[in-house]
Write a protein that binds this DNA or RNA. Structure first.
Ligand SMILES: [Mn+2]
Ligand SMILES: [Mn+2]
Ligand SMILES: [Mn+2]
Ligand SMILES: [Mn+2]
Lengths: 217, 217
DNA sequence: AACTTATTTTAGATAAGACTAAAAATAGAA
DNA sequence: TTCTATTTTTAGTCTTATCTAAAATAAGTT
């Protein structure tokens, strides 16, 4: 099988490739992995030797079929464990990421099959991200970033972009969670800030917040 | 914290020290770790630098207070995860060791605290081994190896020495499990083999089998 | 006590994964 | 197009954890 480091790099490249659509820059990988560009280059070259990524120097990196399969399997494990931590061990949604980051590397097909069953085959993790099935298929959900919505539009929160503790606690404090209905009451052109309606309350939110909330309309 | 390898060596030394009472030979460690004596020496010296073991060359190794604490914490995690796998995910008791071997290295105090609670604070793992509490205290149980019992003595199975799949499946096949009442009907001096009564059946067992069953009289 | 064997340690190599510093390639600006 | 700034790669070093081969020590035997 693959090492922890390899799995983490593949997962990282997968996420960057999704976001930017196209070859991923070495610097972007290094930044997300909290490492130096030279270390990233080193790993990328080893992954290329194993045909998990295709790579032409100075031109960026993309995952191969094999690389995608590994990345998606790790993401599946990560998200299933997050569900376990929240649903069964009563962790808060902002506390689970670090632990899942470790648990995602446990090697056992059977374990994941049984965990999935134990959790009753969940479709989404606590942050609203879809859980790939055992064949690696990911349910594509139609969702919009809140910051791109306009006045008087509404929808329900189905996911968050940021998963840092600070951000998730910010949402908790305002009773905003996955499934919460949100309506745009006003939007400021100058700075992109908004007034939103959540249940019976109204909040002012900055553009930065709005950019990190995914809404299903 | 400590690396996976360090944790595995410490756990290994702990178990060997329990068995033989006294300093542990380098070869014994190497054998149990499935590695070479030179590799073991190397690690022992590094553990000695970190004051996790006390070591005098050619004289063997013993754990320090600090080393014991690390080993026991790992053993606690290993056994709690084994309970989880059997009780919650319905694994058989012979299938859980390998997976627990990985899970025991997950670093999170909070996770173990919550797992322990989720499992309702179990005292023993599926193989009858006691689970250390969070302070590292291990319940000492009075138990006897079946091979040392004599004719017409009886007791209940409280643990197994071997945990290999083959051995555990051998027991399953004969309906022998933790908690099963066993009576010695006969014992052969020549080879130490026995006839035992288990529920309504009688079995012939070799000395090797008898040496791997712990009985509470 | 001297020799032989088994155990343990050292010396030297290797691979993964990280780093710093320097060189090379690319992109942007003048 | 040529210079400059940024990005990326290479070269060389480090640590952990492993190996093989050789040297050192301990234990056992005549
Ligand atoms: Mn990870
Ligand atoms: Mn998540
Ligand atoms: Mn282990
Ligand atoms: Mn066990």
């Amino acid at each position: 099988m693959y090492t922890r480091a390899e799995e983490n790099y593949l997962k990282c490249i997968f996420h960057l490739e999704q976001e930017h659509k196209g070859a991923v820059a070495t610097n972007a990988i290094a930044q997300m992995m909290h490492t130096k560009a030279s270390s990233a280059t080193d790993m990328i070259q080893r992954l290329a030797d194993k045909e998990l990524v295709s790579y032409r120097r100075y031109k960026g990196t993309t995952l191969t079929k094999a690389g995608i399969a590994v990345a998606v399997a790790v993401i599946r494990k990560h998200r299933l464990w997050e569900v376990f931590l929240v649903e069964k061990l009563n962790f808060q949604w902002d506390e689970v990421h670090e632990i899942a980051e470790q648990l995602e590397h446990i090697q056992s097909e059977e374990l994941i099959t049984r965990l999935d069953k134990f959790l009753d085959h969940p479709d989404y993790d606590p942050h609203g991200d879809p859980i790939p099935d055992k064949h690696g298929n990911i349910k594509k959900t139609e969702k919009k970033v809140l910051s791109e919505m306009s006045k008087s539009q509404h929808g329900i929160l189905v996911g968050v972009r940021e998963t840092s503790g600070e951000f998730l606690q910010y949402l908790d404090k305002r009773n905003i969670a996955i499934g919460t209905k949100i309506k745009v009451l006003g939007k400021e052109f100058f700075d992109g800030s908004m007034i939103i309606q959540v249940k019976r309350e109204q909040f002012f939110i900055s553009k930065k917040i709005a950019e990190n909330l995914y809404i299903q309309v």
